[in-house]
Design a protein around this nucleic acid. Structure first.
Lengths: 92, 92
DNA sequence: CCGATATTTAGCTTGTAGGCTAAATTTCAG
DNA sequence: CTGAAATTTAGCCTACAAGCTAAATATCGG
């Protein structure tokens, strides 16, 4: 699974896009629990979504005592931006 | 299924991203047959991928005699760009 | 008209994403 | 140490995406 694949697949699920937006709005970092609280889903379900995002490089985390803090990796989103650049204008 | 959902889901599959790039590179339009020829896949498989892209608004087509010409709808990709804008800088 | 060409539709199969519950793990507080 | 808190891991189930083959549809050329 290459990088594009991982990132585009990760962003395909609405819950995962929402996780990204939520963390972003909270300033770029949130604990696992804070993230899970936002969702209807069972906690393990959210855990898995977070793991998909992390595997795609869109999040990373630090363990702080018994909480786990997740951070957005904004630069990873450039992959998507770069891909879109192909369509910026007609190629000749 | 809202617009973001449709577009992000459509772009999640490598074959579909490749269809988009291929048409783009060919100048923005290709017949169904030309698209299918690019792929290893059985033709009906490609047809379905095309339909997903079209349902997402990323492609549209015109019937010209017995060939079907597909066009890229570049503006639809702005949805993705817009979404990414949320991450352009820290929100305060 | 008829056969060839271009493409989709129908319908089947299989793998896996994504949901859940229950159990395990780790760390802190007293 | 022990129990509570925070979170993940394990493992199960189900729906559906995505592949295929075979059949249907539509248009053109002679």
């Amino acid at each position: 699974m290459d990088a594009y694949e991982a990132v585009f697949t990760a962003l395909a699920h609405p819950a995962r896009r929402r996780i990204m937006l939520t963390i972003n709005f909270e300033g770029g970092s949130m604990t696992a629990g804070q993230i899970a609280d936002v969702f209807e889903h069972a906690w393990p379900t959210t855990t898995r979504h977070i793991q998909v995002l992390e595997a795609a490089g869109l999040l990373y985390h630090e363990q702080k005592g018994r909480v786990r803090v997740y951070y957005i990796n904004r630069s990873r989103l450039d992959l998507v931006r770069d891909w879109l650049e192909w369509f910026a204008k007609d190629p000749h």
